[in-house]
């Protein structure tokens, strides 16, 4: 992923070495999760097993402006008759910039009646959230929304 500054050392010019060194410093100064987490798309691919994800049939409600990222109410609703032959099997929610890409995976079925779930999630910063629904025919549908998370001015000193 990143060039290894130690390996680059003997092989390249000074400028490139400096650049690599700076990258190395940046990498070690970031928290471990900042370099370790999969991207949003990678996380979705893991969920779908690489299948195509189509736009539509899913609605993700996320408030555009969030007062506190510790509890953001979301609702995901997928269009489906929810019968034995044609229903939503799973609904997954992913985020772009938290330490981990996964938020939750819900398992539904014909006994759900409707493919609607609500929960409250954490958003570490302003970012994109994606909901993906897996249908009983094996197709995947998704919707994305973004939220701006404002930071409180007066916070308690737990850090």
């Amino acid at each position: 992923m990143r060039e290894d500054p130690l390996r680059v050392h003997g092989l390249v010019g000074r400028r490139q070495f400096l650049r690599a060194g700076m990258t190395g410093l940046l990498v070690i100064s970031l928290p471990r999760w900042a370099v370790a987490r999969p991207s949003l798309d990678e996380a979705i691919r893991t969920f779908t097993g690489g299948a195509d994800v189509l736009d539509g049939r899913v609605r993700l409600d996320l408030p555009p402006l969030v007062e506190n990222g510790n509890a953001v109410g979301i609702t995901v609703a997928a269009e489906s008759p929810m019968t034995a032959d044609d229903h939503v099997r799973r609904i997954a929610v992913f985020n772009e910039k938290n330490p981990e890409a996964n938020v939750a995976v819900f398992r539904l079925g014909p006994r759900s009646g409707r493919a609607t779930v609500s929960t409250r999630i954490r958003l570490a910063t302003s970012q994109v959230v994606v909901a993906v629904a897996e249908m009983s025919d094996g197709s995947f549908w998704s919707s994305r929304a973004s939220a701006i998370v404002t930071l409180a001015a007066c916070i308690e000193d737990l850090s």
């Binding site: 007062e67 510790n70 509890a71 930071l151 409180a152 916070i155 308690e156």
Partner: peptide, 22 residues
């Protein structure tokens, strides 16, 4: 004050659930 509106600081709801405190 930053992103937050300063309220009048009336203790109407304590003990209360603060999202910041979780």
């Amino acid at each position: 004050l930053g992103g937050s509106v300063m309220p009048q600081a009336h203790p109407t709801g304590y003990p209360l659930y603060r999202l910041e405190w979780q």
